[in-house]
Design a protein around this nucleic acid. Structure first.
Lengths: 334, 334
DNA sequence: CTAGGTGCAAATAATTTGCAGAGGC
DNA sequence: GCCTCTGCAAATTATTTGCACCTAG
């Protein structure tokens, strides 16, 4: 399993802290490990390499790594802490097997949004959230020996899943705009949709190329289990919109409204996950796309406004069949 | 704030364990407290009552309570455990304020289902899950003094919210069946829907009566913040179905299919939350309703089958416009 | 030369345990 | 009388700290 490239310690080193061979050694040894080590695990490993490094130093270095952003302290309720890489490792949640004591990582965009909503509903400012599922893993249930894979390299898995969702989204975006262009009669509107379709196709190509290079980094990458769960996006964020376009009685205004909703979601997706990437190339692609999707969004909104003024003077387009595009996720009130 | 009635210790006492005044005292004192106590908090409180009870006994009793099912050990990542009532307290998640160190409880059916899906997708048998949102609570942000309410009595809040969702569900069920009855031309079909409408109305009355008695137990109950978050059910589990009935071209078969889907969800809702109630009365009502919804479900399925045989011999009804009623939540595959 | 960094041993903090005596059934 | 409960003190476990010494910048 390809392990992440080592970070440049000089760059990460917090201000006012000095280089030290011992510390470097501890950090590098830590980064070479996989999974979630307890302080003691690390001490054992270090002691094997160099008898003369003391327990206290390992503890101090672990603390240093946390403040340097190289490691994260995680608590699996064992009465002691464990540490995981955070360099090139997005924040994630855990499945914890009580039988073999291994832990598996995942991310769920759906859970994250629910958490945000709940915090907001309670007037709470969430700074961090922990989701842990305790139980028994697949291989323990089958009585099999724990497969090598403990925590794996979630940087790659994250990139893979984010990329897949992005590809599905661009694919459905292409579908949506192509269909919308076919639907719209007036020239101006058609051109707008055609232009957007072209851009989505361009995005798509870049994403697919990038996905391919990703696969080269791990031959089994495609086969590994899902890391990033994101229900809505399995078929792409525009899938629902493209479906809606098939409805009878669809007109340009409605298509624009749907497009606006989809672009808004898509922009959010690229932005949110772009920020999670610690890989600079993936991050850059995502954030770039986020920006472009925002431009699409602005374009659609401008077009929508223009359309309304054009066809109905200052009045609302048709009888608003669906809530205006601004609709945000409803909060429970019952 | 009304504190739960004390449990009957004799009943809960694990086999082969003896009565002891000290233990009873510790248990009772623990149950009189609110919120999440650390072992040390409890020792302090106990010591104030009786100097001669030792720390070890408190620890031992705490352990005893956990195995007896009276208390739950929770870990807020402070490097020590806290304990909360579990008697008449459904399992829940936590919002934890890092400023005032208070914690607030909530439950999210939506998160629970996502967690189940994710565990299933990874072949993991989930036994328990922990969701903790760390951040700053409303009053700390406002710089106000922490309001009295720390953890509150979530038994009542849970009952209130479950009851509200159930009421909304029955209300939307009444709407759905009334509308369906109006829609269907043939006598047999109409009678089925009318019968179901009547039963939902009956449920509704019982739930509303029960809700009223609940409110008497705490004058401010209605004003307290949401405890149980459950997006889909804000308007009742049949709301979407009732809406669908308005669509043109709706026929009996389609109405039955929608009804089947809604009843299935409703059955699940009553069953799942019925099981979470530790209050025997609420539990009974919910489980009873779960059973009745299951009967409705069976009735609808029988009717659907009969309808198909009646109209098309052994062939499928119409061109299946939506996935057959059996559709379960889709799992991400992208 | 001076602010970190390091080792060692001692301190802390939460929790558990061994053991002898007390008490419920 | 037996088996559990209890107190006390000592042990354990994870982690931190004080202090004297060492080393990079």
């Amino acid at each position: 399993m390809a392990s992440s490239a080592l970070p440049d310690l000089d760059q990460l080193r917090p201000a006012g802290t000095k280089r030290s061979g011992k510390r470097d050694q501890i950090v590098n040894t830590f980064l070479k490990q996989e999974g979630h080590l307890s302080a003691d695990d690390l001490v054992d490993i270090i002691k094997r390499e160099d008898q003369r490094i003391s327990r206290a130093t390992v503890y101090r270095t672990l603390q240093w790594m946390v403040t340097a952003g190289i490691a994260r302290k995680v608590d699996f309720g064992e009465g002691r802490f464990r540490f995981e890489h955070s360099y090139r490792h997005p924040r994630h949640f855990h499945l914890i097997c009580k039988t073999c004591n291994r832990s598996f990582e995942f991310l769920s965009s759906d859970i994250e949004s629910l958490v945000e909503e709940i915090a907001a509903a309670r007037g709470f400012t969430a700074r961090q959230s922990v989701v842990q599922i305790y139980g028994e893993c697949e291989s323990c249930q089958a009585g099999r020996a724990p497969q090598s894979e403990g925590a794996g390299n979630s940087e790659l898995l994250f990139a893979r899943d984010a990329m897949r969702i992005a590809i599905a989204t661009e694919r459905s975006g292409r579908e949506f705009y192509t269909r919308a262009a076919r639907l719209v009669k007036n020239v101006r509107g058609r051109h707008v949709f055609e232009k957007l379709a072209t851009e989505e196709i361009d995005h798509l190509e870049r994403l697919e190329a990038r996905y391919k290079t990703l696969l080269e980094r791990d031959p089994e990458l495609e086969a590994r289990p899902t890391f990033l769960f994101f229900k809505g996006a399995a078929n792409g964020l525009f899938a629902e919109g493209a479906e809606l376009l098939k409805k009878p009685g669809m007109d340009e205004a409605e298509a624009l409204r749907i497009g606006i909703r989809c672009e808004r979601n898509s922009h959010r997706f690229f932005k949110r996950y772009g920020e999670k990437f610690e890989d600079s190339e993936g991050k850059q692609i995502f954030l770039e796309f986020a920006e472009e999707e925002r431009e699409h969004l602005d374009l659609l909104i401008r077009e929508y406004r223009a359309l309304i003024t054009r066809t109905h003077g200052r009045r609302r387009a048709r009888t608003a069949k669906r809530p205006a595009a601004k609709a945000r996720p409803r909060r429970q009130s019952a």
